[in-house]
Design a protein around this nucleic acid. Structure first.
Lengths: 122, 122
DNA sequence: GCAATAACGAACAAATTTGTTAGTCTAAAA
DNA sequence: TTTTAGACTAACAAATTTGTTCGTTATTGC
């Protein structure tokens, strides 16, 4: 858990106060997060689909990251009506949708300056 | 140091291969980094100016973050001619300059959806 | 009845990041 | 001549993130 009064935590709060940029980056940082947002935006919007897309992630970690994205209101869980057992899909909120083009810019920026890899972004 | 063959490090590599987005985010993540880029872009381009802008950062941490930004070619160090002792200023590279508008989008995105704080972004 | 799939949660451990302590070097100011 | 400012580096410690192990619930297929 968070220490709340550690220098680190207080510095984080300080930066959040300096500019929203810092809280924005805090939301999208983290090992799998922006890739999950990106994958969901392309239709991989169920737990097992994401698992298949990101074979190296463990279910526990995937669940945790999804919950954090939900906490930050980037996506919401939705039960798929008429499925038994109840299927769940993840839907990007407006906040999440607005994030996607920014992630695309970041992707292009990365491609421009690192180049050469097979670009899987589109 | 990096363990190089830890699951964590390998997952990071995996993501780097999936999409440049992930390496881009790796570059701008980190407690003070994007704020430093932003501050440098607004002219706070010397060690002591950055220290004044970010009073909570320790010199050691500031030096480390600047070095990492240099490693990722976001900025370069430049000696200021004719100063004794030699003054040093930090200059954004093209890569760094191209990043700034993306950081601005992130900032605006943050402001749109979190709102209410005094926006120090401009 | 027994395994498999979909979707996770809690607790603990390993890895990584962030901050701290101590110290360097040069030159001008007090 | 002792202090101060600018610009840092190395090594270690604290905090935080990421991954692992074990367990759950419910239903369909064999």
């Amino acid at each position: 858990m968070r220490k709340e009064h550690s220098t680190n935590a207080m510095n984080e709060q300080f930066l959040f106060g300096v500019c929203e940029l810092n809280s924005a980056i805090a939301v999208i940082s983290g090992r799998w997060k922006s890739q999950i947002v990106y994958s969901v935006s392309r239709g991989y919007n169920r737990f097992h689909l994401l698992k298949r897309e990101l074979p190296n992630i463990s279910e526990q970690v995937l669940g945790r990251q999804l919950k954090e994205l939900e906490t930050h209101a980037i996506l919401v869980k939705k039960e798929i009506a008429g499925t038994v057992p109840i299927g769940i899909e993840y839907i990007l909120t407006n906040k999440g949708l607005d994030l996607v083009p920014i992630l695309e810019s970041l992707c292009n920026w990365g491609k421009t300056y690192e180049g050469k890899e097979i670009a899987a972004c589109r």
